[in-house]
Design a protein around this nucleic acid. Sequence first.
DNA 1: AACCGTTGGTTCATATATTGAAACGAAACA
DNA 2: TGTTTCGTTTCAATATATGAACCAACGGTT
Lengths: 263, 263
Amino acid sequence: MSTIIKALDILDLFSPAQPALGLSEAARLLGRDKASVLRHLSALEEKGMVEQDSKTKQYHLGPALSRLAMVREQTAPANHSIVNVVRQLAKDSGETTHLSRYSNGRLVQGKVIDAPSRGGIRVQIDPAEELPLHATASGIAFLSSCRTATREQALARPLTCYTPSTPTSREAVLQQVETARIQGYAIGDGAYESGAVGIAATVFNATGEACGAISVASPAASLNDTRKREIIALVLEAARQISWHQGAPQHVISQFDTRIAAA
Amino acid sequence: MSTIIKALDILDLFSPAQPALGLSEAARLLGRDKASVLRHLSALEEKGMVEQDSKTKQYHLGPALSRLAMVREQTAPANHSIVNVVRQLAKDSGETTHLSRYSNGRLVQGKVIDAPSRGGIRVQIDPAEELPLHATASGIAFLSSCRTATREQALARPLTCYTPSTPTSREAVLQQVETARIQGYAIGDGAYESGAVGIAATVFNATGEACGAISVASPAASLNDTRKREIIALVLEAARQISWHQGAPQHVISQFDTRIAAA
DNA sequence: AACCGTTGGTTCATATATTGAAACGAAACA
DNA sequence: TGTTTCGTTTCAATATATGAACCAACGGTT
Protein backbone atom coordinates (compact mmCIF):
# COMPACT_ATOMS: atom_id res chain seq x y z
CA MET A 1 0.00 0.00 0.00
CA SER A 2 1.38 3.39 -0.92
CA THR A 3 2.55 5.78 1.75
CA ILE A 4 0.27 8.44 0.35
CA ILE A 5 -2.82 6.37 0.98
CA LYS A 6 -1.63 5.39 4.41
CA ALA A 7 -1.20 9.06 5.24
CA LEU A 8 -4.56 10.06 3.82
CA ASP A 9 -6.21 7.27 5.79
CA ILE A 10 -5.42 9.31 8.84
CA LEU A 11 -7.76 12.05 7.67
CA ASP A 12 -10.64 9.62 7.66
CA LEU A 13 -10.26 9.19 11.40
CA PHE A 14 -11.65 12.65 11.93
CA SER A 15 -15.40 12.93 12.13
CA PRO A 16 -18.02 15.10 13.79
CA ALA A 17 -17.94 12.57 16.62
CA GLN A 18 -14.14 12.60 16.82
CA PRO A 19 -12.94 16.03 15.74
CA ALA A 20 -9.48 15.76 17.25
CA LEU A 21 -7.11 13.04 18.35
CA GLY A 22 -3.62 12.47 19.59
CA LEU A 23 -0.74 10.58 18.04
CA SER A 24 -1.03 7.38 20.03
CA GLU A 25 -4.77 7.20 19.56
CA ALA A 26 -4.43 7.60 15.82
CA ALA A 27 -1.74 4.93 15.66
CA ARG A 28 -3.92 2.57 17.66
CA LEU A 29 -6.99 3.14 15.51
CA LEU A 30 -4.98 2.51 12.36
CA GLY A 31 -3.07 -0.42 13.81
CA ARG A 32 0.19 1.16 12.78
CA ASP A 33 3.40 2.24 14.37
CA LYS A 34 3.52 5.53 16.24
CA ALA A 35 6.68 6.60 14.47
CA SER A 36 5.12 6.20 11.04
CA VAL A 37 1.93 7.91 12.02
CA LEU A 38 3.90 10.77 13.48
CA ARG A 39 5.82 11.23 10.24
CA HIS A 40 2.60 11.09 8.28
CA LEU A 41 0.93 13.58 10.55
CA SER A 42 3.90 15.90 10.29
CA ALA A 43 3.76 15.78 6.52
CA LEU A 44 0.04 16.40 6.56
CA GLU A 45 0.58 19.27 8.93
CA GLU A 46 3.22 20.81 6.70
CA LYS A 47 0.65 20.95 3.93
CA GLY A 48 -2.07 22.23 6.24
CA MET A 49 -4.24 19.15 6.01
CA VAL A 50 -4.14 18.82 9.77
CA GLU A 51 -3.24 21.21 12.53
CA GLN A 52 -1.80 20.47 15.92
CA ASP A 53 -3.01 22.22 19.01
CA SER A 54 0.25 23.29 20.58
CA LYS A 55 -1.25 22.97 24.02
CA THR A 56 -2.99 19.61 23.97
CA LYS A 57 -0.80 18.15 21.20
CA GLN A 58 -3.97 16.88 19.58
CA TYR A 59 -4.41 17.03 15.85
CA HIS A 60 -7.45 18.27 14.00
CA LEU A 61 -8.31 18.90 10.37
CA GLY A 62 -6.42 21.79 8.89
CA PRO A 63 -7.05 24.96 6.90
CA ALA A 64 -5.89 23.55 3.58
CA LEU A 65 -9.08 21.53 3.49
CA SER A 66 -11.22 24.63 3.72
CA ARG A 67 -9.19 26.26 1.01
CA LEU A 68 -9.27 23.34 -1.39
CA ALA A 69 -12.94 22.64 -0.79
CA MET A 70 -13.60 26.25 -1.64
CA VAL A 71 -11.71 25.91 -4.90
CA ARG A 72 -13.62 22.77 -5.66
CA GLU A 73 -16.96 24.39 -5.03
CA GLN A 74 -16.12 27.50 -7.00
CA THR A 75 -15.00 25.48 -9.95
CA ALA A 76 -17.46 22.62 -9.73
CA PRO A 77 -19.02 22.53 -13.18
CA ALA A 78 -22.66 23.55 -13.41
CA ASN A 79 -23.10 23.13 -9.71
CA HIS A 80 -25.21 26.15 -9.09
CA SER A 81 -28.21 25.09 -11.07
CA ILE A 82 -28.11 21.67 -9.52
CA VAL A 83 -28.09 23.06 -6.01
CA ASN A 84 -31.10 25.12 -6.98
CA VAL A 85 -33.00 21.99 -7.91
CA VAL A 86 -32.22 20.48 -4.52
CA ARG A 87 -33.30 23.67 -2.82
CA GLN A 88 -36.54 23.75 -4.78
CA LEU A 89 -37.21 20.14 -3.85
CA ALA A 90 -36.73 20.98 -0.17
CA LYS A 91 -39.16 23.85 -0.55
CA ASP A 92 -41.76 21.85 -2.46
CA SER A 93 -41.61 18.86 -0.16
CA GLY A 94 -41.14 20.84 3.02
CA GLU A 95 -38.65 18.21 4.16
CA THR A 96 -34.92 17.81 4.50
CA THR A 97 -33.41 17.00 1.15
CA HIS A 98 -30.00 15.75 0.14
CA LEU A 99 -28.09 15.01 -3.01
CA SER A 100 -25.42 12.35 -2.75
CA ARG A 101 -22.65 11.34 -5.09
CA TYR A 102 -20.93 8.05 -5.64
CA SER A 103 -17.18 8.03 -5.68
CA ASN A 104 -14.72 5.22 -5.09
CA GLY A 105 -17.09 2.82 -3.46
CA ARG A 106 -18.70 5.43 -1.28
CA LEU A 107 -21.85 7.47 -1.39
CA VAL A 108 -21.04 10.89 0.01
CA GLN A 109 -23.23 13.92 0.58
CA GLY A 110 -23.05 16.43 -2.23
CA LYS A 111 -25.50 18.95 -0.88
CA VAL A 112 -27.86 18.92 2.06
CA ILE A 113 -30.75 21.38 2.35
CA ASP A 114 -32.47 21.35 5.70
CA ALA A 115 -36.24 21.36 5.81
CA PRO A 116 -37.76 24.82 5.71
CA SER A 117 -38.36 25.13 9.44
CA ARG A 118 -41.92 26.16 10.07
CA GLY A 119 -42.04 24.13 13.25
CA GLY A 120 -43.12 20.54 13.46
CA ILE A 121 -40.82 17.52 13.40
CA ARG A 122 -38.17 17.27 10.69
CA VAL A 123 -35.26 14.99 9.89
CA GLN A 124 -31.76 16.27 10.53
CA ILE A 125 -28.95 15.12 8.30
CA ASP A 126 -25.24 15.45 8.91
CA PRO A 127 -23.64 16.78 5.72
CA ALA A 128 -20.32 15.15 6.60
CA GLU A 129 -21.81 11.72 6.97
CA GLU A 130 -21.22 8.96 4.46
CA LEU A 131 -24.34 7.08 3.34
CA PRO A 132 -24.28 3.28 3.66
CA LEU A 133 -25.30 1.91 0.28
CA HIS A 134 -27.39 -0.95 1.68
CA ALA A 135 -29.26 0.94 4.38
CA THR A 136 -30.44 4.19 2.83
CA ALA A 137 -32.98 5.02 0.17
CA SER A 138 -30.24 6.86 -1.70
CA GLY A 139 -28.00 3.80 -1.57
CA ILE A 140 -30.68 1.40 -2.75
CA ALA A 141 -31.68 3.76 -5.54
CA PHE A 142 -28.08 4.05 -6.67
CA LEU A 143 -27.49 0.30 -6.51
CA SER A 144 -30.60 -0.27 -8.60
CA SER A 145 -29.09 1.71 -11.48
CA CYS A 146 -25.35 1.24 -11.31
CA ARG A 147 -23.28 -1.28 -13.19
CA THR A 148 -23.15 -4.81 -11.84
CA ALA A 149 -19.50 -4.68 -10.85
CA THR A 150 -20.15 -1.64 -8.66
CA ARG A 151 -23.11 -3.31 -7.02
CA GLU A 152 -21.18 -6.49 -6.35
CA GLN A 153 -18.34 -4.52 -4.88
CA ALA A 154 -20.76 -2.79 -2.52
CA LEU A 155 -22.39 -6.05 -1.49
CA ALA A 156 -19.04 -7.66 -0.86
CA ARG A 157 -18.38 -5.28 1.98
CA PRO A 158 -19.82 -5.97 5.43
CA LEU A 159 -23.47 -4.87 5.70
CA THR A 160 -23.54 -2.95 8.95
CA CYS A 161 -26.79 -3.14 10.89
CA TYR A 162 -28.12 0.21 12.07
CA THR A 163 -31.71 -0.47 13.10
CA PRO A 164 -33.95 -3.53 13.42
CA SER A 165 -35.13 -2.95 9.84
CA THR A 166 -31.68 -2.70 8.26
CA PRO A 167 -31.33 -5.37 5.57
CA THR A 168 -28.17 -7.28 6.45
CA SER A 169 -28.29 -10.19 4.07
CA ARG A 170 -27.27 -10.01 0.47
CA GLU A 171 -30.69 -11.34 -0.55
CA ALA A 172 -32.64 -8.78 1.46
CA VAL A 173 -30.68 -5.94 -0.07
CA LEU A 174 -31.00 -7.32 -3.59
CA GLN A 175 -34.75 -7.60 -3.21
CA GLN A 176 -35.03 -3.95 -2.24
CA VAL A 177 -32.75 -3.04 -5.10
CA GLU A 178 -34.94 -4.97 -7.50
CA THR A 179 -38.16 -3.23 -6.43
CA ALA A 180 -36.34 0.08 -6.70
CA ARG A 181 -35.22 -0.83 -10.21
CA ILE A 182 -38.77 -1.64 -11.26
CA GLN A 183 -40.34 1.40 -9.65
CA GLY A 184 -37.61 3.86 -10.54
CA TYR A 185 -37.31 5.07 -6.97
CA ALA A 186 -36.40 3.66 -3.57
CA ILE A 187 -38.00 3.93 -0.17
CA GLY A 188 -35.86 3.43 2.89
CA ASP A 189 -38.10 2.92 5.85
CA GLY A 190 -36.03 3.46 8.96
CA ALA A 191 -33.26 1.17 7.76
CA TYR A 192 -30.57 3.65 8.73
CA GLU A 193 -32.30 5.74 11.35
CA SER A 194 -35.50 4.59 13.00
CA GLY A 195 -38.46 6.82 12.33
CA ALA A 196 -36.91 8.46 9.27
CA VAL A 197 -38.23 7.52 5.86
CA GLY A 198 -36.16 8.31 2.81
CA ILE A 199 -37.50 8.53 -0.72
CA ALA A 200 -34.78 8.59 -3.32
CA ALA A 201 -34.13 8.41 -7.03
CA THR A 202 -30.92 7.85 -8.96
CA VAL A 203 -29.21 10.70 -10.75
CA PHE A 204 -27.16 10.10 -13.88
CA ASN A 205 -24.20 11.83 -15.46
CA ALA A 206 -23.29 12.66 -19.00
CA THR A 207 -22.13 9.14 -19.78
CA GLY A 208 -25.55 7.81 -18.78
CA GLU A 209 -24.10 6.14 -15.74
CA ALA A 210 -25.62 6.38 -12.29
CA CYS A 211 -23.55 8.88 -10.32
CA GLY A 212 -25.58 9.46 -7.17
CA ALA A 213 -29.04 9.94 -5.77
CA ILE A 214 -31.43 12.66 -4.73
CA SER A 215 -33.47 11.98 -1.64
CA VAL A 216 -36.11 13.46 0.65
CA ALA A 217 -36.10 12.40 4.30
CA SER A 218 -39.37 12.59 6.23
CA PRO A 219 -40.42 11.61 9.73
CA ALA A 220 -42.36 8.34 9.41
CA ALA A 221 -45.25 9.81 11.37
CA SER A 222 -45.92 12.50 8.78
CA LEU A 223 -46.31 10.16 5.83
CA ASN A 224 -49.61 8.85 4.54
CA ASP A 225 -50.07 7.27 1.13
CA THR A 226 -51.08 10.36 -0.81
CA ARG A 227 -48.22 12.37 0.71
CA LYS A 228 -45.83 9.59 -0.20
CA ARG A 229 -46.94 9.64 -3.83
CA GLU A 230 -46.62 13.40 -3.85
CA ILE A 231 -43.03 13.24 -2.69
CA ILE A 232 -42.17 10.42 -5.08
CA ALA A 233 -43.27 12.59 -7.98
CA LEU A 234 -41.22 15.52 -6.71
CA VAL A 235 -38.12 13.40 -6.21
CA LEU A 236 -38.37 11.86 -9.66
CA GLU A 237 -38.74 15.28 -11.22
CA ALA A 238 -35.72 16.56 -9.32
CA ALA A 239 -33.66 13.53 -10.36
CA ARG A 240 -34.64 14.19 -13.96
CA GLN A 241 -33.60 17.83 -13.77
CA ILE A 242 -30.29 17.12 -12.08
CA SER A 243 -29.46 14.37 -14.54
CA TRP A 244 -30.37 16.74 -17.34
CA HIS A 245 -28.09 19.45 -15.89
CA GLN A 246 -25.27 16.95 -15.92
CA GLY A 247 -25.89 16.23 -19.53
CA ALA A 248 -27.43 12.81 -19.15
CA PRO A 249 -28.31 11.24 -22.50
CA GLN A 250 -31.75 11.36 -23.99
CA HIS A 251 -32.77 7.80 -23.22
CA VAL A 252 -32.11 8.35 -19.54
CA ILE A 253 -34.16 11.54 -19.45
CA SER A 254 -37.09 10.05 -21.30
CA GLN A 255 -37.12 7.13 -18.90
CA PHE A 256 -37.61 9.66 -16.14
CA ASP A 257 -40.43 11.24 -18.12
CA THR A 258 -42.36 7.97 -18.37
CA ARG A 259 -41.77 7.29 -14.66
CA ILE A 260 -43.06 10.71 -13.70
CA ALA A 261 -46.10 10.26 -15.93
CA ALA A 262 -46.79 6.94 -14.19
CA ALA A 263 -46.58 8.48 -10.74
CA MET B 1 11.22 15.32 0.71
CA SER B 2 8.56 12.87 1.74
CA THR B 3 6.29 11.28 -0.82
CA ILE B 4 3.27 12.50 1.06
CA ILE B 5 4.24 16.10 0.61
CA LYS B 6 5.09 15.57 -3.01
CA ALA B 7 1.65 14.11 -3.56
CA LEU B 8 -0.11 16.86 -1.68
CA ASP B 9 1.81 19.45 -3.67
CA ILE B 10 -0.27 18.34 -6.60
CA LEU B 11 -3.42 19.60 -4.94
CA ASP B 12 -1.98 23.10 -4.81
CA LEU B 13 -1.92 23.20 -8.58
CA PHE B 14 -5.68 23.49 -8.65
CA SER B 15 -7.12 26.96 -8.40
CA PRO B 16 -10.17 28.85 -9.59
CA ALA B 17 -8.08 29.83 -12.60
CA GLN B 18 -6.97 26.25 -13.21
CA PRO B 19 -9.75 23.99 -11.96
CA ALA B 20 -8.65 20.92 -13.88
CA LEU B 21 -5.49 19.62 -15.47
CA GLY B 22 -4.06 16.57 -17.15
CA LEU B 23 -1.20 14.34 -16.10
CA SER B 24 1.51 15.78 -18.31
CA GLU B 25 0.61 19.33 -17.46
CA ALA B 26 0.78 18.56 -13.75
CA ALA B 27 4.14 16.84 -14.14
CA ARG B 28 5.47 19.79 -16.10
CA LEU B 29 4.27 22.33 -13.56
CA LEU B 30 5.87 20.36 -10.74
CA GLY B 31 9.02 19.59 -12.65
CA ARG B 32 8.64 15.92 -11.89
CA ASP B 33 8.39 12.69 -13.75
CA LYS B 34 5.11 11.73 -15.35
CA ALA B 35 5.21 8.25 -13.87
CA SER B 36 5.54 9.53 -10.33
CA VAL B 37 2.85 12.10 -10.75
CA LEU B 38 0.55 9.46 -12.17
CA ARG B 39 1.08 7.24 -9.15
CA HIS B 40 0.48 10.15 -6.85
CA LEU B 41 -2.66 11.16 -8.66
CA SER B 42 -3.94 7.60 -8.55
CA ALA B 43 -3.39 7.45 -4.81
CA LEU B 44 -5.10 10.79 -4.36
CA GLU B 45 -7.94 9.59 -6.51
CA GLU B 46 -8.36 6.42 -4.48
CA LYS B 47 -8.89 8.59 -1.43
CA GLY B 48 -11.22 10.96 -3.26
CA MET B 49 -8.89 13.94 -3.07
CA VAL B 50 -9.03 14.27 -6.83
CA GLU B 51 -11.34 12.88 -9.46
CA GLN B 52 -10.58 12.05 -13.04
CA ASP B 53 -12.98 12.96 -15.77
CA SER B 54 -13.28 9.67 -17.62
CA LYS B 55 -13.83 11.50 -20.88
CA THR B 56 -11.13 14.15 -20.93
CA LYS B 57 -8.76 12.29 -18.57
CA GLN B 58 -8.34 15.54 -16.72
CA TYR B 59 -8.17 15.61 -12.96
CA HIS B 60 -10.04 17.95 -10.68
CA LEU B 61 -10.43 18.27 -6.92
CA GLY B 62 -12.42 15.44 -5.41
CA PRO B 63 -15.36 14.98 -3.08
CA ALA B 64 -13.27 13.96 -0.08
CA LEU B 65 -12.23 17.58 0.22
CA SER B 66 -15.78 18.79 0.50
CA ARG B 67 -16.53 16.12 3.04
CA LEU B 68 -13.48 16.78 5.19
CA ALA B 69 -13.90 20.53 5.00
CA MET B 70 -17.40 20.06 6.27
CA VAL B 71 -16.16 18.02 9.20
CA ARG B 72 -13.61 20.71 9.90
CA GLU B 73 -16.16 23.48 9.84
CA GLN B 74 -18.60 21.63 12.04
CA THR B 75 -15.93 20.94 14.59
CA ALA B 76 -14.22 24.31 14.29
CA PRO B 77 -12.01 24.68 17.33
CA ALA B 78 -11.84 28.21 18.75
CA ASN B 79 -8.71 28.73 16.79
CA HIS B 80 -5.90 28.40 19.19
CA SER B 81 -3.18 28.52 16.61
CA ILE B 82 -4.32 31.92 15.41
CA VAL B 83 -4.25 33.31 18.91
CA ASN B 84 -0.74 31.97 19.17
CA VAL B 85 0.31 33.97 16.16
CA VAL B 86 -1.05 37.12 17.76
CA ARG B 87 0.71 36.28 20.99
CA GLN B 88 3.96 35.65 19.17
CA LEU B 89 3.62 38.97 17.36
CA ALA B 90 3.16 40.73 20.70
CA LYS B 91 6.27 39.03 22.00
CA ASP B 92 8.39 39.73 18.92
CA SER B 93 7.33 43.34 18.65
CA GLY B 94 7.20 43.98 22.37
CA GLU B 95 4.06 46.01 21.78
CA THR B 96 0.33 45.71 22.27
CA THR B 97 -1.16 43.65 19.48
CA HIS B 98 -4.71 43.11 18.35
CA LEU B 99 -6.57 41.04 15.80
CA SER B 100 -9.83 42.51 14.57
CA ARG B 101 -12.64 41.03 12.52
CA TYR B 102 -15.10 42.65 10.19
CA SER B 103 -18.72 41.92 10.83
CA ASN B 104 -21.86 43.79 9.85
CA GLY B 105 -20.19 47.01 8.88
CA ARG B 106 -18.04 47.05 11.99
CA LEU B 107 -14.48 46.16 12.81
CA VAL B 108 -14.49 44.49 16.20
CA GLN B 109 -11.67 43.19 18.35
CA GLY B 110 -11.08 39.49 17.97
CA LYS B 111 -8.15 39.16 20.33
CA VAL B 112 -6.04 41.70 22.16
CA ILE B 113 -2.66 40.82 23.64
CA ASP B 114 -1.17 43.49 25.83
CA ALA B 115 2.45 44.38 25.41
CA PRO B 116 4.80 42.26 27.49
CA SER B 117 5.21 44.73 30.33
CA ARG B 118 8.85 45.26 31.04
CA GLY B 119 8.24 48.82 31.99
CA GLY B 120 8.41 51.77 29.64
CA ILE B 121 5.48 53.29 27.84
CA ARG B 122 3.01 51.04 26.02
CA VAL B 123 -0.34 51.45 24.33
CA GLN B 124 -3.41 50.18 26.12
CA ILE B 125 -6.31 48.85 24.09
CA ASP B 126 -9.82 48.19 25.26
CA PRO B 127 -10.82 44.72 23.95
CA ALA B 128 -14.49 45.74 23.90
CA GLU B 129 -13.88 48.76 21.75
CA GLU B 130 -15.00 48.92 18.16
CA LEU B 131 -12.41 50.17 15.68
CA PRO B 132 -13.44 53.05 13.43
CA LEU B 133 -12.66 51.98 9.89
CA HIS B 134 -11.44 55.38 8.75
CA ALA B 135 -9.29 56.26 11.73
CA THR B 136 -7.26 53.17 12.59
CA ALA B 137 -4.49 51.31 10.85
CA SER B 138 -6.59 48.15 11.05
CA GLY B 139 -9.53 49.92 9.46
CA ILE B 140 -7.49 51.41 6.62
CA ALA B 141 -5.79 48.06 5.99
CA PHE B 142 -9.13 46.31 5.83
CA LEU B 143 -10.64 48.94 3.55
CA SER B 144 -7.67 48.61 1.22
CA SER B 145 -8.48 44.95 0.60
CA CYS B 146 -12.25 44.57 0.95
CA ARG B 147 -14.78 44.67 -1.82
CA THR B 148 -15.87 48.04 -3.15
CA ALA B 149 -19.40 47.81 -1.82
CA THR B 150 -18.12 47.29 1.72
CA ARG B 151 -15.74 50.20 1.39
CA GLU B 152 -18.43 52.51 0.04
CA GLN B 153 -20.74 51.52 2.84
CA ALA B 154 -18.09 52.39 5.38
CA LEU B 155 -17.36 55.74 3.75
CA ALA B 156 -21.03 56.60 3.60
CA ARG B 157 -21.22 56.73 7.36
CA PRO B 158 -20.15 59.86 9.24
CA LEU B 159 -16.40 60.05 9.65
CA THR B 160 -16.01 60.92 13.29
CA CYS B 161 -13.04 63.08 14.18
CA TYR B 162 -10.98 61.77 17.08
CA THR B 163 -7.73 63.72 16.91
CA PRO B 164 -6.34 66.55 14.82
CA SER B 165 -4.89 63.99 12.42
CA THR B 166 -8.06 62.00 11.87
CA PRO B 167 -8.92 62.00 8.17
CA THR B 168 -12.50 63.25 7.98
CA SER B 169 -13.01 63.73 4.28
CA ARG B 170 -13.80 60.93 1.89
CA GLU B 171 -10.78 61.92 -0.21
CA ALA B 172 -8.35 61.91 2.70
CA VAL B 173 -9.44 58.43 3.74
CA LEU B 174 -9.32 57.10 0.20
CA GLN B 175 -5.80 58.37 -0.23
CA GLN B 176 -4.64 56.51 2.87
CA VAL B 177 -6.46 53.43 1.65
CA GLU B 178 -4.71 53.68 -1.69
CA THR B 179 -1.23 53.87 -0.16
CA ALA B 180 -2.12 50.94 2.07
CA ARG B 181 -3.26 48.99 -0.96
CA ILE B 182 0.01 49.66 -2.75
CA GLN B 183 2.22 48.94 0.24
CA GLY B 184 0.28 45.99 1.58
CA TYR B 185 0.09 47.44 5.06
CA ALA B 186 -1.35 50.53 6.74
CA ILE B 187 0.09 52.99 9.22
CA GLY B 188 -2.29 54.96 11.41
CA ASP B 189 -0.36 57.79 12.95
CA GLY B 190 -2.37 59.07 15.87
CA ALA B 191 -5.55 59.26 13.87
CA TYR B 192 -7.55 57.62 16.60
CA GLU B 193 -5.52 58.31 19.68
CA SER B 194 -2.80 60.91 19.70
CA GLY B 195 0.63 59.51 20.28
CA ALA B 196 -0.33 55.97 19.32
CA VAL B 197 0.88 54.61 16.00
CA GLY B 198 -0.77 51.51 14.55
CA ILE B 199 0.79 49.28 11.93
CA ALA B 200 -1.69 46.86 10.40
CA ALA B 201 -2.15 44.34 7.62
CA THR B 202 -5.28 42.70 6.26
CA VAL B 203 -6.10 39.08 7.03
CA PHE B 204 -8.04 36.94 4.59
CA ASN B 205 -10.34 33.95 4.90
CA ALA B 206 -10.77 30.79 2.85
CA THR B 207 -12.77 32.56 0.17
CA GLY B 208 -9.88 34.97 -0.37
CA GLU B 209 -11.92 37.82 1.00
CA ALA B 210 -10.62 40.30 3.54
CA CYS B 211 -12.11 39.42 6.90
CA GLY B 212 -10.17 41.56 9.36
CA ALA B 213 -6.77 42.94 10.26
CA ILE B 214 -3.83 42.30 12.53
CA SER B 215 -2.20 45.31 14.09
CA VAL B 216 0.58 46.42 16.39
CA ALA B 217 0.12 49.63 18.38
CA SER B 218 3.22 51.54 19.50
CA PRO B 219 3.82 54.82 21.27
CA ALA B 220 4.88 57.35 18.63
CA ALA B 221 7.91 58.26 20.69
CA SER B 222 9.40 54.80 20.49
CA LEU B 223 9.34 54.56 16.72
CA ASN B 224 12.23 55.36 14.47
CA ASP B 225 12.47 54.28 10.84
CA THR B 226 14.32 51.03 11.33
CA ARG B 227 12.00 49.99 14.15
CA LYS B 228 9.04 50.79 11.95
CA ARG B 229 10.32 48.57 9.16
CA GLU B 230 10.99 45.83 11.68
CA ILE B 231 7.41 45.91 12.89
CA ILE B 232 6.02 46.08 9.37
CA ALA B 233 7.80 42.86 8.53
CA LEU B 234 6.50 41.18 11.67
CA VAL B 235 2.93 42.32 11.03
CA LEU B 236 3.01 41.13 7.44
CA GLU B 237 4.34 37.77 8.50
CA ALA B 238 1.62 37.45 11.15
CA ALA B 239 -1.07 38.40 8.63
CA ARG B 240 0.26 35.76 6.29
CA GLN B 241 0.20 33.10 8.98
CA ILE B 242 -3.29 33.96 10.16
CA SER B 243 -4.64 34.02 6.62
CA TRP B 244 -2.99 30.68 6.03
CA HIS B 245 -4.58 29.25 9.14
CA GLN B 246 -7.94 30.34 7.82
CA GLY B 247 -7.32 28.56 4.55
CA ALA B 248 -6.70 31.61 2.40
CA PRO B 249 -6.02 30.70 -1.24
CA GLN B 250 -2.56 30.38 -2.70
CA HIS B 251 -2.52 33.68 -4.58
CA VAL B 252 -3.29 35.58 -1.40
CA ILE B 253 -0.53 33.84 0.52
CA SER B 254 2.05 34.34 -2.19
CA GLN B 255 1.16 38.03 -2.33
CA PHE B 256 2.12 38.19 1.31
CA ASP B 257 5.36 36.39 0.53
CA THR B 258 6.38 38.98 -2.04
CA ARG B 259 5.38 41.80 0.32
CA ILE B 260 7.45 40.29 3.10
CA ALA B 261 10.39 39.82 0.78
CA ALA B 262 10.12 43.50 -0.21
CA ALA B 263 10.10 44.62 3.41
C1' DA C 1 8.31 11.62 46.90
C1' DA C 2 8.73 7.60 44.48
C1' DC C 3 5.97 4.94 41.31
C1' DC C 4 3.17 3.94 37.42
C1' DG C 5 1.07 4.13 32.95
C1' DT C 6 0.51 7.16 29.80
C1' DT C 7 1.74 10.58 26.39
C1' DG C 8 4.46 12.76 22.16
C1' DG C 9 8.70 12.40 20.00
C1' DT C 10 13.63 10.45 18.37
C1' DT C 11 17.01 7.10 16.60
C1' DC C 12 19.05 3.93 13.20
C1' DA C 13 19.79 -0.45 10.85
C1' DT C 14 16.79 -2.88 7.87
C1' DA C 15 13.65 -3.57 4.32
C1' DT C 16 10.51 -1.82 1.22
C1' DA C 17 8.28 1.41 -1.54
C1' DT C 18 9.45 5.16 -4.70
C1' DT C 19 11.68 6.63 -8.66
C1' DG C 20 12.47 7.89 -13.63
C1' DA C 21 14.29 6.61 -18.20
C1' DA C 22 12.66 4.17 -21.69
C1' DA C 23 9.14 2.16 -24.33
C1' DC C 24 4.20 1.62 -25.81
C1' DG C 25 -0.28 2.26 -27.88
C1' DA C 26 -3.81 5.61 -28.66
C1' DA C 27 -5.40 9.68 -29.90
C1' DA C 28 -5.04 14.24 -31.77
C1' DC C 29 -2.86 17.14 -35.25
C1' DA C 30 -0.71 18.57 -39.52
C1' DT D 1 0.94 10.07 -43.82
C1' DG D 2 4.17 11.23 -40.41
C1' DT D 3 4.53 13.83 -36.07
C1' DT D 4 3.51 15.19 -31.61
C1' DT D 5 1.42 14.62 -27.32
C1' DC D 6 -1.15 12.11 -24.45
C1' DG D 7 -1.83 8.52 -20.49
C1' DT D 8 0.07 4.40 -18.96
C1' DT D 9 3.36 0.33 -17.99
C1' DT D 10 7.79 -1.78 -16.89
C1' DC D 11 11.90 -2.66 -14.13
C1' DA D 12 16.45 -2.09 -12.07
C1' DA D 13 18.59 1.39 -9.04
C1' DT D 14 18.06 3.66 -4.98
C1' DA D 15 16.05 6.86 -2.05
C1' DT D 16 12.59 6.46 1.31
C1' DA D 17 9.62 4.43 4.80
C1' DT D 18 9.56 1.47 8.62
C1' DG D 19 9.22 -0.03 13.59
C1' DA D 20 11.48 -1.87 17.82
C1' DA D 21 13.63 0.23 21.28
C1' DC D 22 14.46 4.30 23.82
C1' DC D 23 13.74 8.97 25.92
C1' DA D 24 11.74 12.71 28.41
C1' DA D 25 7.67 14.62 30.25
C1' DC D 26 3.15 14.66 32.15
C1' DG D 27 -0.78 13.28 35.43
C1' DG D 28 -2.51 10.30 38.71
C1' DT D 29 -1.91 6.89 42.81
C1' DT D 30 -0.14 5.16 46.54
